[in-house]
Design a protein around this nucleic acid. Structure first.
Length: 573
RNA sequence: CGGGGCGUAGCGCAGUUUGGCUAGCGCGCCUGCCUUGGGAGCAGGAGGUCGGAGGUUCAAAUCCUCUCGCCCCGACCA
């Protein structure tokens, strides 16, 4: 019995590119019939898409189970109380889908599951003898993204694998972190993905150590910097910048003076007007940190890294000041702020330290100051690393120049410590009789996003070129004309033999012209295609084409299974 | 949230400026013939509340008001 026939497979392929898709992975996922959009950032998966998802999930399960993981399944609908306990009901903001039940009780659709699992473990685990615990699930998650885009890469409903580790102490937690880091490396490699682990910020999840697994590519929405020399790599949100030495130049400090700069409100305009380098400009940004205004200085060649700033200020809420507040603080409209004479705390990035006789706003409409010097004309409250690292920045490890790249995050590992266990009072009794909070970690993989990332890395102008490990089927058998009795018999036989050999195979029995079947096979991206046609069948031969390399070999029917196995093995390496 | 664009058949689009008759085209779909090694050909056919509501008008896909949805860019680096 032939169970997999293209004639009955629900895989509607599209000849034309859907107007809404700009990313290649998005286009192919729609065109190859893997999925369809249901709403902005919400997708339905069709059989081929589901098969790929299942392949990825199977790899994840194998590797996590091997790393001591146990699978569970947590609820999507979560009560607000738990989120109040951790304080994140307010922290999470508008990204959280919230709902109210008929009794006016508040719930959310889980954007992540730290709260619910911490509560679960808190209520059940009493003794150190039950630790360590590594629990994971593969579950839908919900984040009401400000702007869903790139298909499944930034969607509002997505499938995520998340694992939470509970250890009795920091050493144990570090071991869990290491185990997950290694498991992730294997998982992505098995999916055919080239990933780069980079140091990352911990964002809304919290904690104090994190790595992201990035897939490099221009489609990525994250910017990372890396050192080609020593291997240091980090998300720019996180990347440390080296301090600058104070200038030891013989340039005498000149007298500060006001210069008219009507309508010149940006660094770019200023450099043009005054014919100076951006690095000579002291850029002054006004922020509101927990309601209090602060000034932040960087050189004109740099941007403020708000993640670093937030950490430096130890504040909960941080945002750029609006025009009214800027006018109040600087006595000038936006574009003319400077550190001289400011009456708010001044946080300076290292990059302003070497600026001698610099340019800054004059806190006066249409005027800037020249010959501004640190410690003479203004004194920063603090000088520290507040800028965003970019290409060319010195590596903090080895001093060589950093390079930068764009990437998509497919996985992230967090060392959480006691960030959730403490406030949620999740404790166990240790060997010494003392009650202690669990030391936790959490580890996510964007499963649906991984599908897109794989396509981004494995495609050509004809369609997807699946790695064997995640292909919806390994082989498609394509008779040129299934109506022809000899071809039909041969195709059926090849199908049976492959299926009996344990190979995932599908038969294209559709009454289509060969060109249509070839195009679809290329678009969907089966790793191997066995073509059965009059050209070679008379000699008892069939054709095997490798999707990725386009290589074709003609083999006797009797050798098909062996040849296919050999080719799949080689492709899988 | 701000700006821009788009909503007409399953997909891709024209028609809207300047209102007018049975609303078109390509692909796909159905029937038949024919064809079968890279998205064939011929003939016939099905499929549309022109996103929705209200208004103007003898007459609205087209003009006006409101509304919903989708896409893109931006979200303030002074």
């Amino acid at each position: 019995m032939i169970t997999m026939r293209a004639s009955s497979l629900y895989a509607p392929t599209l000849r034309e590119i859907p107007a809404e898709a700009e990313l290649i992975s998005h286009q192919y996922m729609l065109r190859a019939g893997l999925m369809r959009k249901s709403a902005a950032g919400v997708y339905s998966y069709l059989p081929l898409g589901v098969r790929v998802l299942h392949k990825i999930m199977a790899i994840i399960r194998e590797e996590l189970d091997r790393a001591g993981g146990q699978e569970i399944l947590l609820p999507i609908v979560q009560p607000a109380e738990l989120w109040h306990e951790s304080g994140r009901w307010n922290d999470y903001g508008p990204e959280m889908f919230r709902l109210v039940d008929r009794h006016q009780r508040q719930f959310c659709l889980g954007p992540t599951h730290e709260e619910i699992i911490t509560a679960l473990v808190r209520d059940e685990v009493r003794s150190y003898k039950q630790l360590p615990l590594r629990l994971y699930q593969i579950q839908n998650k919900y984040r009401d993204e400000i702007r869903p885009r790139f298909g499944v890469i930034r969607s509002r409903e997505f499938i995520m694998k998340d694992l939470y580790s509970f250890d009795r102490d920091e050493a144990g937690a570090q071991e869990s972190y290491r185990a997950m880091y290694d498991a992730y490396t294997r998982i992505f490699a098995r999916c055919g993905l080239k990933t780069h682990p980079v140091e990352a910020d911990t964002g809304a999840i919290g904690g104090d150590q994190s790595h992201e697994f990035m897939v490099l590519g221009d489609a990525g929405e994250a910017l990372i910097v890396f050192c080609p020399s020593c291997g240091y790599a980090a998300n720019v949100e996180r990347a440390e910048c080296a301090p600058y030495e104070p200038a030891v130049s013989s340039t005498p400090l000149c007298a500060m003076e006001e210069i008219p700069t009507p309508g010149t409100t940006t660094v770019e305009e200023l450099t043009r007007l005054l014919q100076v380098e951006p690095s000579q400009i002291i850029k002054t940004m006004i922020y509101i940190a927990d309601g209090q205004p602060v000034a932040v200085l960087t050189s004109g060649a740099h941007d403020v890294n708000e993640v670093k700033l937030k950490r430096a200020l130890m504040c909960d809420q941080l945002e750029l000041a609006n025009h009214e507040i800027i006018a109040e603080v600087t006595n000038a409209p936006v574009g003319f702020a400077g550190p001289v004479g400011l009456d708010v705390p001044i946080f300076a990035d290292y990059s302003v330290v070497p600026i001698v006789n610099g340019i800054s706003g004059a806190n006066k409409k249409d005027y800037h100051l020249r010959n501004v010097n640190i410690n003479r004309d203004y004194i920063p409250t603090k000088i520290l690393d507040l800028r965003e690292a970019r290409a060319g920045e010195k590596c903090v490890r080895c001093g060589k120049a950093l390079d930068e790249a764009r990437g998509t995050e497919v996985g992230q590992v967090f060392y959480l410590g006691t960030k959730y266990s403490k406030p949620m009072q999740a404790r166990f009794l240790d060997q010494d009789g003392v009650e202690k909070p669990f030391v936790m970690g959490c580890y996510g993989i964007g499963v649906s996003r991984t599908v897109a990332a794989i396509i981004e890395q494995h495609h050509d102008e004809d369609g997807i070129c699946w790695p064997v490990s995640v292909a919806p089927f390994s082989v498609i058998v394509v008779p040129v004309s299934y109506k022809d009795e000899a071809q039909r018999n041969a195709a059926d036989q090849v199908y049976y033999e492959l299926e009996n050999a344990g190979i995932e195979v599908i038969l294209d029995d559709r009454d289509e012209r060969p060109g249509v079947k070839f195009k679809d096979a290329d678009l969907i991206g089966y790793p191997l295609r066995v073509t059965i046609g009059p050209k070679h069948l008379a000699d008892g031969n069939v054709e095997i084409k490798t999707r990725r390399t386009k290589e074709v070999s003609v083999v006797p029917m009797a050798d098909v299974v062996d040849q296919v196995k050999a080719l799949l093995n080689r492709l899988g390496e």
